[in-house]
Simulated assay, not measured.
Amino acid sequence: MKLHEYQAKQVFADAGLPVPDSELAASVDEVVEAADRVGYPVAIKAQVQVGGRGKAGGIELVDSEEEAREAADRILGMDLKGLHVDRVLVEAAVDFVNELYVGVTMDRNEGKPVAMVSTKGGVDIESVAEETPEAISRVHVDPSFGMHPFQARKAVYDAGVERDVAMDVASVLTTLYQLWDDKDSTDIEVNPVMITSDREVVCADAVMNIDDDALFRHADLREMEEEGDTAQDDLEAKADEYGFDYVRLSGNTGIIGNGAGLVMTTLDLVDYYGGEPANFLDIGGGAKASRVANALDMVFSDENVDSVVFNIFGGITRGDEVAKGINEALESFDEIPKPVVVRLAGTNAEEGMEILNTDLVTVEKTLEDAVQRAVEYADTEADK
């Protein structure tokens, strides 16, 4: 379960973390009223669960009622990376002189939670980790004992945080770890933690993801999940309707497979051949024609997708059933929305190949060829 920023900040505030004054708004008039109460300047922030909102136009800083109206009118109702914006957070602007990153997640390799601090806040932390990993200090925590104060201080000092705010940042990190532990979180972070000219530490953003299997222990978070459903995007709603495990990614090559391992392999190959995966969609074993048609409807509904690769290995799933589903789905269109590449192997694969309407799809014998062709199609479509 992913909390929206405004929900995570509510959890943070309840735990004593320093967050800016803010109010949630769903209309232009509500934005103006909230801004008057919070006090200008304010940041108007789209409440959708994607990164890079600022660069995409989903966050604006305003100094007056007129600017607030104009910004709210632009942001409310906009399509932000495929997600519809129907609520914004009106938040007191922070006059900062420095930005930090602070977070806690699970290190699967070590089998322990890891606390992280970086002075390169306010940017994509994944890029920092890839390009300059030394810019992130890391401290592993034994979950049996929790985070000791010296560990928080070590993470902060190793990151190079200025000494006059180091203890306050360490306090933020300690509280984040406690929340991570108490709330059965999978990831929790603030990016950025802002340092003001008065040397105050402010949590200007909030990310908190919760283990779904632990929600029965957290009635307050379950209520937030229900509240967040009103902002659920069309793709998530459709995935729930069809009963799919669907994860939206940032690329443009759509992926459909039967089995999590097969789908992950396809994602890796898309990346290997220079493409970017647009999604994870596992149709499961034994999928009938109607389920395959629903999977195509899911991927075609994602406006980021420029091509689709079908990777089916038949065990329980029969290749001829998959082929029927693909034909049924595609024959319902006057014009195919996006190029589709199909690779079938395993049970009844040959029969499926014979059934496929090759006027509607491209058929490849190997997974490698199918992925390469799908990446080529995606590149061509993206250039149009």
Rank of each mutant, 00 (worst) to 15 (best):
32 V>L: 04
58 G>T: 02
32 V>A: 05
68 A>R: 11
67 E>Y: 08
66 E>I: 14
48 V>D: 05
68 A>L: 12
20 P>R: 02
87 R>Y: 03
33 E>K: 15
61 L>A: 09
53 R>C: 01
25 A>E: 03
23 E>R: 13
62 V>T: 10
45 K>H: 09
98 N>W: 09
66 E>L: 15
97 V>A: 08
69 R>C: 04
35 A>F: 00
94 V>Q: 02
64 S>H: 08
61 L>W: 08
94 V>T: 13
37 R>Q: 15
45 K>R: 12
58 G>F: 04
25 A>L: 01
20 P>V: 04
48 V>W: 03
87 R>G: 04
65 E>M: 11
90 V>R: 07
49 Q>V: 06
90 V>A: 08
71 A>T: 05
70 E>R: 07
38 V>L: 14
97 V>P: 05
27 S>G: 15
26 A>W: 12
66 E>T: 15
41 P>W: 05
52 G>T: 00
35 A>Q: 00
27 S>V: 13
76 L>Y: 10
93 A>I: 08
63 D>M: 06
45 K>A: 11
40 Y>S: 02
46 A>Q: 03
97 V>L: 06
35 A>K: 01
83 L>M: 11
23 E>I: 07
80 L>Q: 05
34 A>I: 05
24 L>E: 04
85 V>M: 02
36 D>S: 15
41 P>S: 08
83 L>R: 12
35 A>L: 03
66 E>R: 15
48 V>S: 03
46 A>N: 00
94 V>L: 02
78 M>Y: 07
96 F>T: 00
85 V>N: 03
37 R>W: 12
67 E>L: 07
41 P>R: 06
29 D>W: 06
22 S>M: 15
85 V>Y: 00
77 G>C: 10
61 L>D: 10
91 E>W: 13
27 S>H: 13
22 S>V: 12
47 Q>P: 10
73 D>N: 11
73 D>H: 08
41 P>F: 01
24 L>P: 03
